[in-house]
Write a protein that binds this DNA or RNA. Structure first.
Length: 637
RNA sequence: GCCGGGGUAGCUCAGUGGUAGAGCAGCUGAUUCGUAAUCAGCAGGUCGAGGGUUCGAUGCCCUUCCCCGGCUCCA
């Protein structure tokens, strides 16, 4: 068939359209810097356009689009595998997909990779890219493919092929390197502009810990050097904000080998911030009609058997301890305690909803390899609450919890979220019907609030479905904090009831919720979110008073006392040091307000004020500055 | 838990089969100074812990604890 006569329509991402014969269209695709193309809606290699025999509509796919980036990076992972295969002929290839930020490829190698290997691989990749070999697609029978890879000793590919349902499969070849792949790919290796290999890590074949541990190389690729540089400096920024590093620098918290992994020591600075958060939390909960509780850290094993934790949550619980012949457990959750408090009295339908809240410290066993600073620990304090309500109150309660959550999060500068609805997991308690009902209740509430969400199938807790809210921090990274869980099961297990208007006993519903999640994790997130530069209301030290010379000490001490009396967390630096030194020190400690006192201030009965960021507020009175700081505190900024 | 890397002064890090060094911080003294580091001196380490090899180990080997990057799992 003569391609020249076929009319082809092209549609640009911005909505513009054009049409024409094939050669024209190929030119247009090139001009649009397409790396692949959608033909009648399907993602294809650019080279497929040549073979179009019929009318078709095309859409250029560029690096700018999500799928374009995926193709681009996936192709880069092929080039990396090619390079590794060249350098390590004995390598067995596993899989090499693109990820949100880049790509990886898993290899089975007979020796561990080193950072020097990464450099060699990068060099090799650069050569392959320079050669600009075309990516060629081949299809063949699955059986043939299995034979081909078997001969090549590519056991992992054979395993993958055996599980593919289709009879025919596609392979991609570039510069003699062949890989099983669905495609599409960029037209040729030379398309790849800027790439970088980032790290080496272990990864189980198919993510299953019973399988062999492979070596994974992570990398990323961009079509412009500038964007790669930008991404790398983003990684630098992430490193700078690392809460473990800032935690040490700002003396916020630590962990001790002598105490044990995953157990946090809150230093005075960290504890001050925590207290500010807790005070805020308590005040707001009181306003929102929550009753605040305290409960013990251990309880009889029996309780946990009754609650189902022992059956469904044991792998996260510590071994029981024996006390006078009875076994006790460190608590992994607070709910059974709150239930006991509810049950300590007869409840009427008029009492509901009853909202119990507790900053409850729980202990969960986490495998040693997963611990991570404050973000993953073994002992942590949840900002937990349990709402006991009638079934007809569920939706309203969930709605008000959602509002409350968003309000709390917003106070910390989180205003973007990803919302997930997690449904019934494999291990669960309760009836299918109650799962159905509670899932529906959560869904309805999300819809009423107009929050867009995605469903996380099977990710619910064993006793009920949940809504999880992930906040986006100032670097747009998503962190799991809030969780709202409906529970029809625990009230059943503990025979929780209330007296209805009919004089009979009814079963309330429980809603478990945590807004910040855990104080430890939330604190870790906040440190990174603020890059250690806490807003004034949270800052461990809100004002530093710095003197020019020793003769200013007396006045400075007096001012300090006034600040402290006004409730401002203040430190005074009377050291025999130059003012530049004191400013530098206070700035590094990220103290928001720096107050300078010298001869001039004393004669004028004033203060010179400088902010952490170097901004000079000039001269003002003690009252003026206290006013400013107190306004920051009240407005939580 | 698994794979890989690592643990040296309070912190950041250098170093070697012959029992350790820098910068910052600390202390002392001099200096009394105006918006991100004044100068000098001093002190500071069972080189993560235990065992082994060796005439001799911080270094080599084994075990163990902890940390880091991931996998898996999760607040």
């Amino acid at each position: 068939m003569l391609n020249g006569g076929v009319e082809i329509k092209i549609k640009y991402p911005d909505g513009r359209e054009a049409s024409g014969p094939l050669p024209d269209i190929e030119g247009k695709l090139k001009k649009a810097s397409a790396i692949a193309v959608r033909i009648n809606g399907d993602l294809r290699d650019l080279s497929e356009v040549k073979h179009l025999g019929n009318e078709a509509s095309l859409e250029p796919v560029t690096f700018e689009s999500g799928e374009g980036r995926e193709i681009y990076r996936h192709s880069t992972s092929h080039v990396m595998a090619h390079a590794v295969k060249d350098l390590f002929p004995n390598v067995k290839l596993a899989i090499g997909p693109s990820t949100e930020e880049g790509f990886y490829y898993d290899f089975d190698l007979d020796r561990p990779l080193t950072p020097e290997d990464l450099e060699r691989i990068e060099k090799k990749m650069a050569e392959i890219i320079k050669e600009n070999r075309p990516f060629n697609r081949k299809t063949l029978q699955r059986k043939e493919a299995i034979e081909l890879f078997r001969k090549a000793g590519e056991d992992y590919k054979v395993e993958l092929l055996k599980e593919i349902a289709d009879d025919s499969v596609s392979l991609y070849e570039e510069g003699g390197f062949v890989d099983l792949c669905r495609g599409p790919h960029v037209p040729s290796t030379g398309t790849i502009g800027a790439f970088k290999l980032l790290s080496i890590a272990g990864a189980y074949w198919r993510g299953d810990e019973r399988n062999k541990m492979l070596q994974r190389i992570y990398g990323t690729a961009f079509d412009r050097e500038k964007d790669l540089k930008e991404y790398l400096s983003f990684l630098e920024e992430v490193k700078k904000r690392d809460h473990r590093r800032l935690g040490k620098e700002l003396d916020l918290f630590s962990m001790s080998d002598d105490i044990g992994p995953g157990l946090i020591l809150w230093h005075p600075n960290g504890a001050t911030i925590r207290r500010a958060i807790e005070d805020f939390w308590r005040d707001e909960h009181a306003k929102a009609d929550y009753k605040i509780l305290f409960s013990p850290h251990i309880a009889k094993l029996n309780l946990w058997q009754k609650s189902g934790h022992w059956d469904f949550y044991r792998e996260n619980m510590y071994s029981p301890m024996e006390i006078e012949g009875l076994e006790y457990e460190l608590k992994p959750m607070n709910c059974p305690f709150h239930i006991q408090i509810y049950k300590s009295n007869l409840r009427s339908y008029r009492d509901l909803p009853i909202r119990y809240a507790e900053l409850g410290t729980v202990y969960r066993y986490e495998r040693s390899g997963v611990l991570h600073g404050l973000l993953r620990v073994r002992g942590f304090t949840q900002d937990d609450a349990h709402i006991f309500c009638r079934e007809d109150q569920i939706e309203d309660e969930i709605l008000s919890v959602l509002d409350f959550t968003l309000f709390i999060l917003k106070t910390f500068g989180f205003s973007e979220y990803d919302v997930y609805l997690s449904t019934r997991p494999e291990k669960y308690v309760g009836t299918l019907e109650s799962w159905e009902r509670s899932t529906e209740a959560l869904k309805r509430a999300l819809e009423v609030k107009g929050l867009s969400y995605s469903v996380d199938p099977g990710e619910g807790v064993f006793y009920g479905p949940k809504i999880d809210i992930k906040v986006k921090d100032s670097l747009k990274r998503a962190w799991q904090c809030s969780t709202i869980q409906v529970d029809f099961n625990n009230p059943e297990r503990f025979d929780v009831s209330y007296r209805g208007p009919d004089g009979k006993e009814h079963r309330p519903i429980m809603i478990h919720r945590a807004l910040m999640g855990s104080l430890e994790r939330f604190f870790g997130i906040l440190i990174e979110h603020y890059a250690g530069l806490f807003p004034v209301w949270l800052s461990p030290v809100q004002a530093a008073i710095l003197t020019i010379a020793e003769r200013h000490s007396e006045y400075a001490s007096k001012v300090t006392q006034m600040f402290k009396a006004a409730g401002v967390r203040t430190e005074v630096n009377l050291d025999n040091e130059k003012i530049g030194h004191k400013i530098r020190e206070a700035t590094i400690r990220k103290i928001p307000y720096l107050v300078i006192i010298g001869d001039k201030e004393i004669t004028e009965a004033a203060l010179s004020v400088r902010k952490q960021n170097g901004e000079n507020l000039g001269s003002m009175t003690v009252e003026d500055l206290l006013g400013l700081i107190k306004e920051d505190i009240t407005l939580r900024r």
